[in-house]
Each structure stands twice: as structure tokens, then as C-alpha cells.
Write a protein that binds this DNA or RNA. Sequence first.
DNA 1: TGTTAAGGTGAATATGGATTCCGCTTTGGA
DNA 2: TCCAAAGCGGAATCCATATTCACCTTAACA
Lengths: 210, 210
Amino acid sequence: MKVNPYSALRTLATVTSQPIRQPKPQTAPRAPRRDALRNDAIVINAARAVFAELGPQASMETIATRAGLGVGTIYRRFPGKDALLDAIARLLTEEIDQAAAAALEDPDPGAGLERFLEFVGAFHAEKRRYAAALTDRVADDDAVSARTADRVLRLTQKAVDAGYLTQGVTADDIKALIVALRGVVAASPDGDDAPWRRFLRIHLTGLRAD
Amino acid sequence: MKVNPYSALRTLATVTSQPIRQPKPQTAPRAPRRDALRNDAIVINAARAVFAELGPQASMETIATRAGLGVGTIYRRFPGKDALLDAIARLLTEEIDQAAAAALEDPDPGAGLERFLEFVGAFHAEKRRYAAALTDRVADDDAVSARTADRVLRLTQKAVDAGYLTQGVTADDIKALIVALRGVVAASPDGDDAPWRRFLRIHLTGLRAD
DNA sequence: TGTTAAGGTGAATATGGATTCCGCTTTGGA
DNA sequence: TCCAAAGCGGAATCCATATTCACCTTAACA
């Protein structure tokens, strides 16, 4: 069993009668080191690159090498591989959220929706190797996730109201289209955008018909 | 290094001068044992069940237990887990092929196509946990695979000729729809068929519109 | 019914990674 | 410039499987 280091210190202090500088209880002890802050981003970027190339089963060793760091460093910031994936998932959700926000700005709701869906397609194409491993990593009731869901909902409603989409189309239909797109992308040869673009076109036709 | 057991036997034979019963070269040595034949199917069925439940990362141990056999027995028939997955993939391709064949029989090409796609959706729903791990396990130029591809091609052409699908729709569009369906199924809650059915409906509308 | 090889078993082994740990290095702060 | 504390590195450890193998059973055939 391990000895509690704090009790040892306290004992020593008593014996030597040295005044102890008590750090003010809630004061931040010290500024975080610059390299530590930098590495945080380096790790995530390396992980994204490696996962994109090798898929989610890429080893921590590989990620560390790519980052130019030791494995231990990764574990200092992220509890484990799973947490790393979670962090990436949140980051990507954020990116999708940005795109949704931008789409909502478009004065033409139909154009905005199309732009958003094309972004999603390209997004999945870039992450084809590990996109599937990201599902369910961000809880539905997570702040970002909820915000995005709300944006998609409004995007859909605006498109319906503007007459771009048929009456009766819901946000769930758009979500289904998004995961479908992922399936098409995953099954197409790397770098070939034509299949998912065509697929998107056709499905939108279906969503617009009476 | 390991000694070749055959040379050892040969040496013994020479020394003792015993006549060796040479089995007639090309004669089938013996009929396969009944239990062996039976186990072959037992293993595949157990594997299908376990994969459906736990996904493709289920252990060989689990499969063996489910089959009521020892792990070694599985390895006697299949070189390894990968080969087991391959075998299942081929089997499932065969099932899809059957469905395609049946659909071609339908006097109404449109109804036949719809029936086929609904079969595919239900098929994926049943295998939602491991369907993704099956892709690319059966080569495109494999006999069954090629036959199925041809059937889908004919199914599509008939549907176009009959005016059910718009002019210009190709077999690739149907294949894309199939993988898309897989994506939708994978993202829906277990056992809920409504999402993929609705999705199929909508996409077919898109494929039928001018 | 006896002989024998095919077939079955599952403990032992091999392997590939994830995760931990501790000595060494760097940085913040006085 | 000096002293910790915060960080880093990466070999050592741990673990969860896949796979092998030496020995035991059982079915086929005479």
C-alpha cells in the first residue's frame, strides 16, 4: 500500500517547526506550461490524421509517433483512447454545427439546406475511414449536440415553409439522409465524390416531390 | 527447429523391414464423420447468432461456447476468425441473391424491385451489429457476387423499361440505395423498422420522378 | 467387435495493443 | 539563476484475444 504523501509532509513540518507557506486555498497554483497547451492540439490533430488514414483501430503508438510525442504524453491529457475519440467526436460535432449555423444565414432556405448537406457529404468523405466509430460518442443531450439538432430542425422548417421541401418532411428525414450519405460515402472508392452527390440529388428530389 | 515426422517413420520402417500398407493413391480414404458434417453448420449458425448479438468483435471463445463445441473444433474447419466471417459473408450474399432471383420472377417489375429492396432493408436490420464488417469480404468477381450484380442490373433495367423508374436510373443507383439503407438501419434504434421504410419510400419517389 | 484415422478438446502459448510508471527534462516564478 | 512542480518519454506491464497442439473420443470400415 502507498503512503499518503501529505500526512508525511505535515509530520515533517511539525518536527522542524518550519513555517509552511500555505498556498491560498482556491488560488490557481501555477500557469500551465506552454508546451503542454501546445501538445493538447498537436495530439488531437495527429489523432485525426492517423484515424483518417488507418481507421479507428490505429494504435496509440502510431498516433504518438505522428505527433512526435511519447505515448505517455497522450495519456497525461486523455484518460485513454476512448476519451480521445470522444474529444474528436465533440470537435467534429462543433464543425457540423458551424455549417448548420452558416446555412441558416442563407436568405434562400432551399439553397442553405443544400449547402449544408453538401458540406456533410464532403465532411464524411474526408472521414470515411472512421466516421462510423464516432456515432454515439456525443450524447444527444450534450450542449453542442442539442444546439445542432435545433439548428437542423429550424433549417428543415424554413425549407418546408419556403416550399422547397414537401409539407410533412421532418428534421428526422434530414438526419436519416445524413447517415445514409455516410453509408454511400463509405461504400464508394476513396476520393470519388460523384456517387454521394448523385445520391443526394436523387433523394432531395424525393423530398421535394408531392 | 522441428523434425519432420515423416522421415522418422520412414526410418523406422526400413529398420524393421515391415511391409507398409500403401493406401491406393487416389482412393477416397474414408467417408467424413457425421458429427463433423453437422458441426460445420453448427459453427456457422452459432457465429451468425453471436455476431448479430455482440458484433464482429465477439470472441472465438464465445462462439465456441454458443456452439457447444471447443475452440479447437472451429479452427479445424476454418483457418481463423477472418475465414469464418468470409464464409458468413458468402452465405449472406447467397441469400441476397435468392431474393434478387425471386424479385425477377415478379411479373410487375416495379413490385419486384420494391419487394427486393424491402428484403434488403429487413436483412440489414437483422444484421445491424455486424453488417458493416461484411463489406469487401466477397470479391466482386466472385461467382455469387457477380451473379447477384447481374440480377440487380436486370431488375433495374426491367423497372426502367416498365416505366417504374425514371429513364437514366442505373444499377449503381440501386446499389447506392442499398448501402444507404444500411446506414439508416445502423443509426436507428434496434427493432424499429419505420425509419428505413420511410427513407426507402422517399428515395424511391426520387428515383421515379422525372 | 477391433482397429484406426478423422475429429474434438481446451489448456498453453503467441500476439498485439492499451495503459502504467518512474526517472529525466523543461518551464514558471521568486 | 535556482527550485520545485508540471510535463515528457518510452520501456515494462498487463490484458484480452486469437491460434496452436498434444492427447483423448468417436465413428467408419473390415
